[in-house]
């Protein structure tokens, strides 16, 4: 029977303590809440991740596509011991981070997706994820890879990660880097921020609903179009930021 087959397909999750929510002030002065979400909230997140699959810059496409798949995997019980944290500003989705508990001692960091840029939101969310592995799950090390140069600078260089090149990472098998407890403690003062408990109103606002990001990354103008005038004789370059060129209508 299908019920029985589902039992075989569905991994059994180990018990994992929940991430206690925290909040922080951003450069803009706004408050950002970082909290863990359960499976029931995943359908609220997916529609905000999907558009980024089509953003072919700064590796948003590959990261968004994989995050989408990993969120679905979590939602449909196809990944074992996965967790998802979100960062929200006024309820709006600002970042999604996720990972997996491989064993009692080892964590596997999956992705960090920032939907609001320029305020170290991705960095804050990544630090929260490391905090979850180290302080909440009490693990010894987290295996990490970067899929973009920005990620490489943020994780490998800022945290001074150690090489674990003998271990293939779950994200496609590239050589892993590791955050050890020692490195995390060294970075704690400068990179890990946040205050607890989150003021009730802010937490209630965040939990009330995951609102769409206000200014998410958008696709670049089509660089393969030979010239700007082909698709925008009125002057895309003069458009205020946030508005992007229409793709050229190619004559058949």
């Amino acid at each position: 029977m299908s019920i029985d087959l589902e039992k075989i397909l569905r991994p059994v999750d180990s018990p994992m303590p929940l991430y206690p929510p925290k909040y922080m002030t951003l450069a803009s002065g706004e408050t950002m809440v970082v909290r863990q979400v359960g499976r029931e909230e995943i359908p609220q997140i997916l529609p905000h991740v999907e558009p980024l699959i089509h953003v072919e810059r700064d590796f948003y496409n590959i990261v968004a596509a994989r995050v989408y798949a990993e969120l679905l995997g979590y939602y449909c019980h196809r990944v074992q011991d996965e967790y998802v944290l979100v960062a929200q500003v006024n309820g709006e989705l600002a970042a999604v981070v996720n990972g997996r508990m491989v064993s009692k001692d080892v964590g596997m960091s999956y992705h960090t997706l920032a939907l609001k840029r320029g305020e170290r939101i991705g960095a804050h969310a990544f630090a929260a994820k490391m905090e979850y592995h180290m302080d909440i799950l009490g693990q010894k090390e987290v295996l990490i890879v970067a899929e973009s140069p920005i990620g490489f600078r943020r994780w490998m260089i800022e945290y001074k990660l150690e090489k674990r090149f003998e271990i293939p990472h779950e994200l496609g098998g590239p050589p892993s880097w590791a955050l050890t407890r020692e490195l995390f403690d060294a970075a704690r003062d400068t990179l890990l921020v946040g205050r607890r408990p989150v003021p009730e109103a802010a937490l209630a606002k965040a939990k009330a609903g995951i609102l769409p990001p206000i200014d998410p990354p958008t696709p670049a103008a089509d660089f393969l179009a030979a010239t700007r005038s082909q698709y925008d004789s009125t002057g895309t370059a003069l458009l205020p930021p946030g508005k992007t060129a229409q793709k050229p209508k190619r004559s058949e």
Binding site: T25, L26, A27, E30, R120, T190, L191, V193
Partner: peptide, 11 residues
């Protein structure tokens, strides 16, 4: 956000 809050030095 960039000078006073506890997170400012990380921001």
């Amino acid at each position: 956000g960039i000078i006073d809050s506890p997170e400012a030095m990380t921001n």
